[in-house]
Design a protein around this nucleic acid. Sequence first.
DNA 1: CTTAGGG
DNA 2: CCCTAAG
Length: 643
Amino acid sequence: METVVGIEDNDDGRFEDSGVDRSSSALSSPKQISNPIVYKLVRVEGDGKLVPATDDEVMEVGDFLEYENSEMHVVTNTGQSLECISIERSSSGKLRLECLEEADLGKLNAKLQILQKVKEEEKHRISCGSPVHSHENIDSQCSADKFPVMDGKVQSETPCQEIPSIASSFNYTHSNQSGSIDQCSRPSEGVIESGSSASAVYSNLKSDISMSDGEICLDKLSIRELHELFKVTFGRETTVKDKQWLKRRIAMSLTNSCDVSATTFIIKDNKIVRKFEEDSSGNMNAGSLISSENMTEEDVNFKDSSAVDACGIDDNQVVSETRSENGLEYENYQTGQRAAKRIRRPTKRYIEELSENESREHNPRLSISNKTVGFGHVSPTSNVRPARNAFSEARTYSTRLDSLGGSNVQIPCVSRVRRSRPRKDIASLMKFHPTGMGEAEKLSNKLLEHSSDAGSDFSDKVLKSRMPAKFHQPSSSEPVKEQCPVICPIELRQELRPKRADPSGHTSDDNNIVTVPTAKGGMRRKHHRAWTLVEVIKLVEGVSRCGAGRWSEIKRLSFASYSYRTSVDLKDKWRNLLKASFALAPADEGINSRKHGTAPIPEKILLRVRELAEMNSQVPPNYSSSQLASGGGSVHGDRSGYL
DNA sequence: CTTAGGG
DNA sequence: CCCTAAG
């Protein structure tokens, strides 16, 4: 698939065209939306110039891209979702990667136009003192499709399905009408209701959306209003009651940009411009205030749910959206929930246990929205990463060729993407608030199967490993944290890297080890770190090379990049392997007959293990020499003679 | 510190 | 995985 990149310039807050012609896009041809997205990686210079990303830069985010790629197509098909990534590297030379849907800008502007139109009409109506309809039908089913579209451009033949956001934009203003075409034909009708308490909602909405102040502040909208807006935007109703979610979605739709804070926009000269840091503090306050003020009963449940950072890295939602198109609103909602959960604020207890200093920054949305990027620096629970988790939940199986002992073996690879994900923030959090750890874990629970702790792990064995590994994989698989117990933004990238990407072996998954303080004062590893096939293979190779028993050496040679896996671990694993290899019916010679549920370790490997074991006479007398020595020949290039 | 074994 | 006793 091709690639696009939407670039966005932070400095003037304006959308920058990334070379893709957007002007012609959105409004007219719905096709464009379904067209493949094209991405391009560029860097935004300080002066706002776009510079093609260098290879290095690309590399830097390569993992990220890899990650996205697989999902991208899904998104593409929806025709309406957008996938965004935003990576910023430094304050000065920003490396930004964004994927914007081609039609986004156009769409956006179209929407604005519509809005403006509406607004004008409203004004007109108001000035005329036209009566206002009650909002009796606020929740009416008024389907967007039924309404005539005012804007000619939009009207054209935009399939509402495809671009509901546009088609319904207008509708939005009067969607609350009972759905009668008549009324609808009078666009401004019903929406405007200045002063009427009955339709306060709408008047509110109106004012909020109005551009007089040149600003759309989703924060000010109530749930209901958000619903409306949502409907307008996406052409369908939603039952989701999570405000944050709604806001985010709407905002995303509006800007189609990822690092939208879902909060505030400024409209300038018919262009939507984002509001940036300048007013961050203000926004923050406003945001928090509003969010609590406007909270309706329905919201209560989500009160503490913080929105996923607006960065739109939430693929689930995007995907789910497509689904809900089929009426699976529930699912949509669920996903939304999940999204919220991911960054969901810790439960009360957790919060309580947090120190005050933390509490303020605790709303991820806020913090993020104010830090255009602030990846790892935001609140502990907000993370961009988890978004990927759902995705990674699906394991991808594949086979790869691995050479073991000289022969090629087809090994099934389960890539548990994102099996563990060291969240620096969490790490630091746990470190500073050990008591809160339990909660923190609950949070990351399924998502972060192995939440790892960088902070406390420097006290662990990792320290002991004075391996040169550090030089092998500087930023990825090393316990760098030792140096910076707090937060190492540098390492963030690492998290993007899918696990075991490289069969060659030097792919350690993450380096972080979760350790928990033990009663005796020592540190204890918390989770089992499943041995991956790669590791096993390396181990076997190591043993074949150095001989069983020289674990520290093997560790040094083959596991330098695996900061966890101590030599003892290797030994233990080997022991298990031995057991396994011999457990496997000596009669069948490994051809098959493996107990179900047994580790997916390929026979060949076990065979090899056995072989090695034999060579080292670690073999139980019964199974000695004979069968293996001969039969095993098929498996290896015979490195015998090592030990 | 590294190994070997038991738990 | 952890713990510990032995080189």
